[in-house]
Design a protein around this nucleic acid. Structure first.
Lengths: 347, 347
DNA sequence: TTGTACGCGTTATCAA
DNA sequence: TTGATAACGCGTACAA
């Protein structure tokens, strides 16, 4: 059925040398001690036979796979692809492959994938899955398994992590709204089971207090996921109140889009009737109707830094920093506008 | 440094049985012939020691990795994530893992990744990379390596493939524009080095001829990639002409977005001054300004079908069909409108 | 400079 | 029902 695999032994035979010699030639380590002629014989024999090394056998022998695993909550969320690209580019450049796993925010899948990755002996893991239990991560830590957290932290430990400056971003977003004259500001928060969700909500509270703007508890709606649909549902609860907000901050862009949809359904125009700010600046938000004002996060760069951190750890290099915080800044586009007279009247 | 790996041998020792027995117990194949007591001893020993099987060793022995490779041009293109999810869900459900590779439409990376995938002995490959040379694919075919083409074909061979009904989609898109009264219709075509690019342009020609609408050669602009930027550049060439089109068909949604940007820059409102149709119905297009009229392609389903096809081949199941063509339909949203009087005057 | 021998962790096959 | 053995393909001390 299948052609028998061509191994190092076949090459050796063809070149009339010992298999170990073939191995030496093909792994051009220190060019030390190899007759140029022998080397040539081996190389041509290998090419002629169409020899293909077995990464499996090599990994088994070396106990190294040159593979990284990455756990992502949802590849459908446009926030992640640029991060993944950053990781992959860096990995590729440094001789590593990437195995990508979609957890769908299901702890069952998270565990399954984590197990698979370890059984496959990937050299390290990137965890962007924000729901994953700290306990699961603690296990990796205990086993000294190399890993890096992306866009999430763990309580009270100094795991390697690449984080976003949520405080700064949220402050910029809300300062912007307050500066535009808004006082009744609604918050569509992310799931409070995630660190990002909690941090951004807390930061929002802090910022508004600092600006002496009262945050009406009725104007805080927590979404059960970082998705457009969840944002829509959360926003509906927000907009039907007797005294609706004149502006809303969505804890990420997908939530903001959900808000937009709910607003339209309620007959509200954005930004005329409702100003809207998101977070992440995911691709294409500038083409939305209206273009989304949002907090820019350097997604690709996050991936690059995360991969760098992980590979450094794998290769035993001294880690200069255990924690990288990405800088962010507000990008003002069309979805926010100064508080209008009509809005004031309504309120 | 690293803890020594716990192997089947350690478990065997702890359970006072032979390693081969451990293997038998752990691979709950036909429950045939195993003393319940022995089985229990092994299982508890394994659990107690925290035994983790080595996928590497197993794959080496079995010559099977239960891993699929997937080549994608660009994970940043929102068209692909749903496909990838479809593939991954199916693979996961059937016991396979997925190694994802971003080719960036670079043949260098395509070759590099393809080589890596084969060295890692993935059981099969999904190729969504439309630029890949037919010659490269011919090599896979020659080696009888299991693969499935996604959203692309190869000339004159009956490779396993999951395709999109481009003819139908393009016809629906252009019929829609013609029905709205448009006669000066521009085409922003995809790269003619890809099968999709060629098919859609040809289909456009065919459809317009069938409707007795003349296609002005000056109104056909070929983009050098299926990206927003390339669409923008191609559209600029189109819109600056002396007699600009009243409607444009973009060969995919990203190109259409590029057109939108170019139109705005030229002071054209969409759809008042210019109607626009895309292709693919990638996620979030409904939230664009204006919402994009486009041809819906069941992306996730494509991934599912592709994975099914591939796994069937790997497992030696008879392939009912070698070629699956996905049905498509037009989704009319806000970016298209009937030809207006002002547009007629201009023309 | 090259050959010898062994082990990486499994599982299939055969023998007991 | 379980044990022994070989082999999957490679890399590396060590010996020659």
């Amino acid at each position: 059925m299948t052609e028998p695999r061509i191994t190092i032994i076949d090459v050796a035979r063809a070149a009339s040398v010992h298999p170990s010699t073939v191995s030496r030639v093909l792994n051009r380590r220190a060019e030390l001690s190899l007759l140029p002629e022998t080397r040539q014989r081996v190389i041509t024999a290998a090419r002629r036979l169409g020899y293909r090394p077995s990464a499996l056998a090599r990994s088994l022998r070396l106990q190294r796979t040159f593979t990284l695993g990455m756990l992502v909550p949802n590849i459908d969320n446009p926030f992640f692809p640029p991060i993944i690209k950053g990781v992959e580019d860096t990995a590729h450049a440094r001789g590593y492959n990437l195995v990508l796993c979609n957890t769908e925010d299901s702890s069952e899948r998270e565990d399954a994938y984590l197990r698979v990755l370890r059984e496959r002996q990937v050299d390290g893991i990137l965890i962007a899955s924000s729901f994953m239990a700290d306990a699961t991560i603690a296990e990796l830590r205990r086993d000294r398994f190399p890993f890096v957290l992306v866009n999430r932290g763990t309580r009270g430990s100094d795991d390697l992590a690449v984080l976003v400056d949520n405080e700064k971003g949220v402050a910029a977003a809300l300062d912007h709204l307050v500066d535009l004259g808004h006082r009744r500001i609604g918050i569509v928060a992310g799931p409070q089971t995630t660190m990002t969700g909690r941090q951004r909500l807390t930061a929002a509270r802090v910022t508004l207090r600092a600006r002496a703007v009262k945050l009406d508890p009725a104007l805080v709606s927590v979404a059960e996921a970082f998705s457009q649909e969840a944002g829509y549902r959360a926003a509906r609860r927000l907009l039907v109140g007797v005294e609706p907000p004149t502006a809303v901050f969505g804890a990420n862009d997908l939530l903001a889009i959900g808000v937009l949809r709910a607003a339209r359904e309620a007959g509200l125009e954005c930004p005329a009737d409702l100003s809207l700010v998101g977070f992440n600046d995911m691709p294409l938000t500038e083409f939305f109707g209206p273009p989304l004002t949002t907090v820019h996060v350097p997604q690709r760069e996050m991936g690059v830094r995360a991969a760098d951190l992980l590979i450094a750890q794998i290769e035993g290099k001294p880690a200069a920093t255990r924690r990288v915080t990405m800088d962010v800044h507000l990008v003002v586009r069309g979805s926010t506008a100064a508080l209008s007279r009509s809005q004031q009247k309504t309120a």
